[in-house]
Design a protein around this nucleic acid. Structure first.
Lengths: 230, 230
DNA sequence: TTGACCCCATTTTGATCAAATAATGCAAGT
DNA sequence: ACTTGCATTATTTGATCAAAATGGGGTCAA
C-alpha cells in the first residue's frame, strides 16, 4: 500500500502536491479504513507507512485537526477522537441544519443528467447492501450524499459538512461493521423523486429524514456498546 | 512587530508551539489587522515578516485554508478570498442556523459571573463606539460574541462559527472602516437580559436579530462599493 | 504593435537534520 | 511490593537545503 502511494506522489501524471495526496489518503482511512476511534496517530508513523517525509504529513494532519477529524492533545499527541453521546448529539444538531439545506440548494441546480448519476450511485449502494459489503456500503452512501450535496454550488456549507462526516465517520463505520448491512434503510429514493419533480422542499425533507435515521442508528450502537469499547 | 513575535516563539514562558502562535497571529491580522480581501499571501513573506522559518508557517496557513480563512488556488498561490454577494449570503445562511443555537446553549450554562463578564465586554464595546475606535469596536464585538458562545460548552458548533468569522471578518472590517462606528446598533443588551432571566429562547432570538443586522450592514456596503474595490 | 519564446527571480514543495519535549523502562531505595 | 529518580527512547518541532514549479520580464521576429 505504501508503494502504491509512493508512485502517486510523483508529480509526473498527477499534478497534486504530496500533502494533498496524504490528506486524501488519511481521509479515506478515517472514513472507510481501519483507524479505530480513540486510537493514536503519530506523524512519523504516517510518514513511514506512506513512504514520505514528515513535512507533507504535518500539513495534511494539521488540516485534519482543523476540521475536527483528528484531535490534538496538550501532550502534542494526536489521536482519532473517541465518540461520546453528547458529541454525537452535537454533530447531529449541526448536520440537521446544514445537510437538508444543501439538499434544498442542490434541487435548485440539479439537471436530468445529475439525477441519473445519483440513481446510479444509489443502485451501487443497494448492491453493496445486498452483498453485505460494509465498506462498499459506506463508500456508496458517502458518494450518494456528496454527489447530491455537490450539486448545490456551495462554498461554505459543503466543506463544513465534509468535516462533520469525517468526525462521525469512524463511529458510523464501526457501528456498521458490528451490525452488518442487513436492515439498512434510507430516504434516497424519496430524495431522487424530489429532485426529479424539482421539489426542493421535498428534497430537504428526504435528507432530513435520512440523516435522522442514520443518526439514531449510530446513537443506538453507541449506547449499547459505547462503554465496552473503552 | 516581528521581534515581539520572535520572543513569543521561544518556549520559555509560553509553552505554545510556534505554528500555533503564527496561527493566532494571522488570525488577528485577518480579523483586526490590515490584510486586504483579495490580497495575496506568500509563505515566505509571512515567514520573513514574523522572523520564523517556513515550516511552522506552512502548518498555520494550511489550517487557515482548511477553515476557509485563506484560499488555495490551483496555481499553488494563497490569497485572502475576495467577498462576493452570494458568498456573503451563504456565510450568513450558516451563521443564521448556528450562532443563535450557540446562544441558546450558552443560556443554559451561563452563571451570574458569566453574565457580568459579558456586561463588561459590552461596556468596552460601547466605549469603542463612543471613541470612534474601529479596531477596538471590532475586537470588542468579537470578544462579546465569543465570550457568549464560549459558555455553550460546544465542540462542534463553536469551531465552525469561529471559521465563519474568519471568512467574513475582513469584509466586516473594511465596511466598518469605511463607515465609522457611528450609528452601530446591536442586540447585546437584549441578549444579556435574556441570559439574566435564563430565557434561552430570548437569547437565541437576540443573537439572531444581532447577526442579521450585522449581515445587512455588510451586505449594503458590499453592494454599494463592492464593484469599486476590484 | 503584437505575439511567441526564453531566461531569471520568486515561490512552493519535500527531504533531512538538530534541538526540544514527552513517554517509557529500569534500577534503587523505602 | 511500591514508589521515586534517572537514563534511554520515541516523537514532535523548527530550521535549512535542494529541486520543481510558477510568474514576470525581456528579446526577437513577423
Amino acid at each position: 500500500m505504501a508503494r502504491e502511494f509512493a508512485t502517486k506522489r510523483m508529480f509526473n501524471g498527477a499534478p497534486r502536491p504530496t500533502h494533498q495526496a496524504i490528506y486524501g489518503e488519511l481521509r479515506e482511512r478515517i472514513l472507510f479504513g481501519d483507524f479505530e476511534p480513540g486510537g493514536s496517530v503519530t506523524l512519523q508513523g504516517v510518514a513511514d507507512e506512506l513512504g514520505v517525509s514528515l513535512t507533507p504529513v504535518r500539513e495534511a494532519v494539521r488540516r485534519l485537526i482543523a476540521g475536527g477529524a483528528l484531535q490534538f492533545h496538550d501532550n502534542r499527541r494526536i489521536s482519532l477522537p473517541a465518540m461520546t453521546e453528547p458529541l454525537l448529539e452535537e454533530i447531529y444538531a449541526v448536520r440537521a441544519v446544514t445537510e437538508p439545506e444543501l439538499a434544498r440548494r442542490a434541487a435548485d441546480h440539479a439537471t436530468r443528467e445529475d439525477v441519473e448519476r445519483l440513481v446510479t450511485l444509489d443502485f451501487a449502494l443497494d448492491e453493496a447492501i445486498a452483498k453485505g459489503d460494509v465498506k462498499g456500503y459506506l463508500r456508496a452512501n458517502y458518494d450518494f450524499h456528496f454527489g447530491l450535496y455537490g450539486l448545490s454550488d456551495s462554498r461554505v456549507f459543503l466543506p463544513i459538512v465534509e468535516n462533520l462526516w469525517l468526525q462521525f465517520g469512524p463511529c458510523l463505520r464501526v457501528a456498521c461493521h458490528r451490525f452488518g448491512t442487513s436492515g439498512f434503510s434510507d430516504q434516497h429514493k424519496q430524495a431522487i423523486a424530489a429532485l426529479r419533480s424539482g421539489d426542493a422542499e421535498a428534497a430537504r425533507h428526504a435528507v432530513a429524514e435520512d440523516i435522522e435515521q442514520g443518526h439514531l442508528f449510530v446513537l443506538d450502537d453507541l449506547r449499547r456498546d459505547g462503554g465496552v469499547a473503552d
